[in-house]
Design a protein around this nucleic acid. Structure first.
Lengths: 115, 115
DNA sequence: ATGTTTGTTTTCGATTCGCGAACTTTCTTT
DNA sequence: AAAGAAAGTTCGCGAATCGAAAACAAACAT
């Protein structure tokens, strides 16, 4: 049961036909996947993940909380992953600036609520 | 073609029979997977990943591509992963602020350099 | 209202799968 | 070295699953 297929497709504003075309399969075949009527073979699963540029585990709802949530501070300290924007990686300064920015903004919102 | 099955099994010092037993399938079935003679259905793929406590993407040799570099725009759209700060996940507004903030700052730096 | 796009469901030929069984190879024991 | 056991490979076939056309329904547009 690939529950995420619908939301992924809607995010792109694609019809089933268009999605099926992009995957090179018939729309009834794709409809079968999205409805859960049948499961795609692994090859098709991989092509779907590629199409949306997501992991297969995400498609299968297997993303664990630990993997799913990335702490910005940890990203800043241990550079095991890289955030990028407009095809340009974020450097340390940009990241720490944003952390400060967001902290201030959160504090601000909190203060406003308390008024 | 699940190239990692052999090394995973050898790491555990399991025979094909023992692996098949743990998966609840026949050894010839498992042998088919490991040799690449046939692909497992998705359900079996998930059970293999669970057995070895790894991701499906790792089984499919798709680890690096998707995990190393995280595009902020994709994070905003796909919501596959969540950034968090001070144990509080970034909501869409904060993330889009992040993006706008960084873009503005980059443009600013660019302008300064040109002076 | 009519035609068109979109989504759903059914049907069936074709493909793929699971597994028993037979076989080969490797390891163990004597 | 021979015999037996365990491990791994391959084949064949009934069963299960798949892909896609087609018919249908629903929503949208002209």
């Amino acid at each position: 049961m690939l529950k995420r297929l619908l939301e992924l497709r809607k995010n792109k504003n694609w019809s089933m036909q268009e999605t099926a075309d992009r995957l090179g399969i018939a729309k009834s075949t794709y409809a079968g996947y999205e409805s859960g009527y049948r499961m795609p073979p692994i090859q098709a699963l991989v092509e779907i993940a590629d199409l949306y540029e997501i992991t297969v585990d995400y498609l299968l709802n297997r993303e664990e909380e630990n993997n799913r949530e990335l702490d910005l501070i940890k990203l800043l300290v241990a550079e095991e992953r890289v955030l990028s924007l407009d095809n340009e990686p974020l450097n340390r300064e940009e990241l720490s600036n944003f952390i400060a920015f967001t902290r201030v903004k959160r504090q601000l919102n909190k203060s406003i609520k308390e008024m």
